[in-house]
Design a protein around this nucleic acid. Structure first.
Length: 257
DNA sequence: AAGTGACCCAACCGCCCGGCA
DNA sequence: GTGCCGGGCGGTTGGGTCACT
């Protein structure tokens, strides 16, 4: 028989998260940590299922997330890791602190895969695509416009410096697509000069591997007093959450011009 | 300027696995 | 040993955005 749904979806909200929901979730996790995702939405006052909250936190709200486009070096490393590990995105992501499996998976599916195909390489096997009889042979010749050092230790193409694609010409694409919450977090970094990544690495357990056993209490060190960066972060978030949304948009308006 | 297709990515779905009673 | 539950993971999708005509 069919599997039971992860939660009772009746009355639960789906789709894109609102700023308000983000704030609620962030506020809750920063104040209480995560012990059981199933209880998080209830306790945080959200009409979402625990899974949805977990995903939102891991893929978007975690303070140690690295934002912006993946660098070429990162891309090359992904290709190498994929050749070794296959579609084990979480494993691959663990090599990139601050990056999520979802982000890497998306990047692979939308760009790297295409790029490899374009270079005449099979994205699965990482080997040159064998042309079917009668099939137009267009792919392999295109490597002339690219420089590719093929056959690493795993038969993996390394150092791909293909001619820019449509997207490569948008270096700040990642930053430009930041939505309100992202801006919020970025603004924080700038405003307080507080390295949330460092905070997560110092205090929270396993932030690097997206562990959910993160607990703020564990990371708080009373001996650090007022200068404790974690406390600083919490304070910042608290004040951030109380911002007037209108003011927030006004503040960000010039950035998007 | 408008229409259209391609692209990107956040979010969802459902299966798998490990822990626990 | 077995079944349940929650978390983790990979695949997929839908909607917004961008680029091109």
């Amino acid at each position: 028989m069919g599997r039971q749904p992860c939660c009772d979806k009746v009355g639960l909200k789906r789709g894109p998260w609102t700023i308000e929901e983000d704030h609620k979730l962030m506020n809750f996790i920063l104040n209480n940590g995560i012990h059981c995702w199933r209880t998080v939405p209830k306790l945080a006052g959200l009409l979402r299922c625990g899974k949805s909250c977990r995903l939102r936190w891991i893929n978007y709200l975690r303070p140690d997330l690295k934002r912006g486009a993946l660098s070429e070096a990162e891309e090359d490393q992904i290709i190498q890791l994929h050749a070794r590990l296959g579609n084990r995105w979480s494993k691959i992501a663990s090599y990139f602190p601050g990056r999520t499996d979802n982000e890497i998976k998306n990047h692979w599916n939308t760009r790297i895969k295409k790029r490899l195909k374009h270079l005449g390489l099979d994205p699965v096997s990482h080997k040159p695509i064998v042309q079917q009889e009668g099939e137009e042979k267009t792919e392999t010749t295109q490597t002339s416009s690219s420089s590719i050092h093929q056959e690493g230790s795993f038969g993996v193409p390394v150092m791909i410096t293909e001619k820019h694609t449509q997207n490569d010409e948008k270096p700040n694409e990642g930053a430009m697509k930041l939505d309100e919450t992202t801006d919020l977090l970025c603004d924080y970094d700038e405003m307080v000069g507080f390295d949330v990544g460092l905070w997560m690495n110092q205090g929270a357990t396993n932030s690097h591997s997206c562990s959910t056993s993160f607990s703020l209490e564990e990371s708080l060190n009373p001996s650090m007093g007022e200068s404790n960066p974690i406390q600083q972060w919490v304070d910042c978030v608290d004040s951030m959450l109380s911002w007037d949304e209108e003011l927030f948009f006004l503040k960000n308006y010039p950035i998007n011009q």
